[in-house]
Design a protein around this nucleic acid. Structure first.
Lengths: 107, 107
DNA sequence: TGATTATATAAGCATATACTTATATTAATG
DNA sequence: CATTAATATAAGTATATGCTTATATAATCA
């Protein structure tokens, strides 16, 4: 891993919305439509943030029918876990999503 | 520390030149003119990078006569040390500076 | 005090980034 | 097989970023 890659990783981390997405993914894997619901942003905006997180290998995806579930990765960055540790707990936001009936359940 | 501040910190880390500066400061404190010499960049470019690192509390300064020596800080970020650990060793670059006779010695 | 050295700041410019709206792709379903 | 739902991508735009050159500030020194 060279300096250019490390810089790209931090650029990816250098946005409040993406940090919120990572904080949410700390709780559990989520799909774009759920993130749209929680973060109250447009679907393309979320998709573009996810793309950046994917390109920098901070999240990985798992397709499940019509949904794509995103979850934390970051395994190539030795410092990633300690960064995650400083992100806030977002269990409540996920709870709210479930209460609103907008949680995607499938398997 | 809120998400906005964490994002600002990572923005600060999201630049190759600033990562090189931090890598160099891992070896020892340096002043702007030494960084100019090692990184072969203009003095205002270096000063502006240093300003960003200072604003995000990743480096601190110590004035010594006409020089200002910059050194690592980052004490407010629990993850900073693990990021530093992934940055390359730049002892050789500092050695080159000393050999070139451009190292600033004072006290 | 005037010149020199180190550093900071300001203004200008080219590129990058984060959004928007519109459209394309992909999978499920009736 | 046409429609719907989830997601991705493209194009446009406003703001941010990283450089440049020019100038200001601050400390030293002759």
């Amino acid at each position: 891993m060279n300096l250019e890659q490390i810089a790209e990783c931090h650029k990816s981390l250098g946005d409040k919305t993406r940090l919120r997405i990572l904080s949410l993914l700390k709780v559990e894997e989520l799909c774009v439509c759920e993130l749209v619901e929680i973060l109250q942003m447009t679907q393309p905006a979320i998709s573009q943030h996810i793309r950046k997180l994917k390109n920098t290998k901070l999240v990985k995806e798992r397709r499940q029918g019509q949904w794509i579930f995103y979850s934390l990765d970051g395994s190539i960055y030795p410092f990633f876990q300690s960064i995650l540790d400083t992100l806030p707990d977002m269990k409540n936001e996920i709870e709210e999503l479930k209460k609103s009936g907008r949680k995607v359940f499938c398997n």
